[in-house]
Design a protein around this nucleic acid. Structure first.
Lengths: 326, 326
DNA sequence: CTGAAAGCGCTTACAG
DNA sequence: CTGAAAGCGCTTACAG
């Protein structure tokens, strides 16, 4: 910028005016500055600008896995809102590891992102308190923050699971299995709560052997599904706790001679084309992302109200697999 | 930092040493500095650090659509490599719009990202020449750069499509349709070239009415598939140019009384569970991302060789739909 | 082992 | 309409 000013024979401030389109520069001066910018290949350094201005016009998104198709629409929705507000988006995966989540979130704070959207992997977010106190707007999404009071945007995991299981009950099932993610994952336990609520409401017992929470690795899920489907009192229907579990269970059921009822949490691509089509409780991932990002920018605009918890509805999509009788 | 130094009764440089873990500080001094950092809630400002040091330890990824499941594993692979190199990742979608691509890429350059990975939407990347000359390492992925000489990592679109169509020919088909993305998309025309190569190699004519390039909106793809499958000389097999087209055509074929052969470019989740399973030419999206990111950091480490074009192989996955006879 | 001075490349607040 | 000075929060290069 100093070189541009020298070449154009003007002061630094005049170059700054031209670069930022500020008024108060004659056409002739502006032309000389632009010529110098072109000749010297000048490009404004936003790092310096940021240092002086305070706000970085960037936000960070920490999610579980950038490669998980469930989070892709959420990611895009956050980006669109950020773009509407002139902000750039950093993002990264926690890989479901609390230490990695913290490391990433703090690295983003050190870059002085204006705000942070976090899909938590850990259960203790007190490490973010100094950052939040220093003004980093923070919104949690998909799962609530642990041990701090903060904004959160969630799906109605309890209600969605309850409705899905009630749907199976309505189709005559009395022995229904539940296979979900590890019990440390908030959504897994909420959905299990929904399962119990539906069984209780129907006056049905929920045998311990019908419930399995754990890693979503295909080997474990396959073994558990096969176990529940055999033995003296096999289940006649399964409720699966997320998209990865559902995909694996669909594969197990495809190998069986008789159809077994299935309702899954989360929608899947092509689920309508299987026979039978897979009945699911769908979340609106894009809406989760959009809502969280809008709340974040609302805070950035100075809204100092109490932390808010927003719960978005789920939707039961009937396609056939959930309507198979016992 | 000034406040920390004052409170600890030391100089600025000593605070800097403690914060960065540099040697040459007595245990007692370090303790006093740490106490002051804690009491004042000091957090190092990386914007200032970056301004002084030159490198920002961040890279940018411009892709077509963060929500497209095809790009999700690519995104994650880039992130992992960046993380291994201690860099943070910015990303954003061009939404297949050349202006938006340029706007985003230049915004990232203004933030002084060390490098840029671009899935191009436009066909003229001369706008990046000043940035590249100024030292921003740039690698294109999935499609080559337009009108500039630059590193690129691509799938073997030509060879993959040729093999897929040859597979249909080997199963007895003589009238094969091709439905792909718009002719402005590099991968679409390369795959069409592969189609022609396979037809020519088999001595088969390729009727113009069997070929359709255009938007991948379901309405258009459905209409084109139905048109090719009816009339006096209907095709007996279809080759689809990408994941979105394949998903739509699978829906069309599911409604037909007789099975029609299909091979698609790009793999789909659950494709193995449809009946018949969908035979595809699969790309390794994660490997595309990993290779591009590794090439980028190789350049950042000072490799000044000529721009390089890397072509990764595709893989034919046989599942049933491509083995249906005419 | 420790620190004062200069500077990274901008913008702010002011004066003319 | 234009510009000189100060400063954002760090690190670099030196000196002691």
């Amino acid at each position: 910028m100093k070189d541009v000013a020298a070449r154009a024979g003007v002061g630094l401030k005049t170059v700054s005016r031209v670069v930022n389109g500020e008024p108060g520069v004659t056409a002739d001066t502006e032309r000389r500055v632009r010529e110098a910018i072109g000749a010297l290949g000048f490009r404004r350094n936003d790092s310096a600008r940021i240092l002086r201005k305070g706000r970085t016009a960037s936000i960070g998104l920490v999610l579980e896995d950038l490669a998980d198709p469930f989070y892709a629409p959420l990611n895009r929705a956050v980006e669109e809102v950020a773009r509407d507000h002139g902000a750039l988006l950093f993002n990264g995966s926690s890989a479901e590891d609390a230490d990695r989540e913290r490391e990433l979130a703090l690295a983003l704070c050190a870059r002085r992102v204006d705000g942070l959207i976090v899909i938590p992997a850990g259960h203790d977010h007190r490490y973010l308190e100094p950052e939040m106190a220093a003004g980093v707007a923070t919104v949690f999404v998909d799962r609530p923050a642990g041990r701090i009071d903060a904004d959160a945007v969630l799906s109605d995991n309890f209600g969605g699971a309850r409705d899905g299981v009630a749907h199976l009950v309505a189709h005559g099932h009395r022995r229904i299995g539940f296979i979900g993610d590890r019990p440390t994952v908030h959504t897994a336990t909420e959905r299990l709560r929904g399962y119990h609520a539906a069984m209780d409401a129907a006056g049905l017992p929920a045998d311990d052997s019908w419930i399995s929470l754990g890693p979503t690795a295909p080997e474990r899920v396959t073994a558990e599904a096969e176990r529940m489907l055999t033995g003296p009192r096999p289940v006649t229907a399964l409720f699966t706790g997320n998209n990865r579990v559902t995909a694996t269970v669909v594969r197990v059921l495809a190998r069986l001679p008789r159809p077994v009822a299935l309702v899954g949490f989360d929608d899947l691509e092509l689920a309508d084309l299987l026979s039978p089509g897979v009945t699911v409780v769908a979340q609106d991932a894009a809406r989760l992302g959009r809502t969280a990002a809008e709340l974040l920018f609302h805070r950035l605009d100075g809204a100092g109200e109490e932390p808010r918890q927003v719960v978005l509805p789920t939707r039961l999509i009937v396609r056939g697999s959930g309507e198979v009788g016992p």
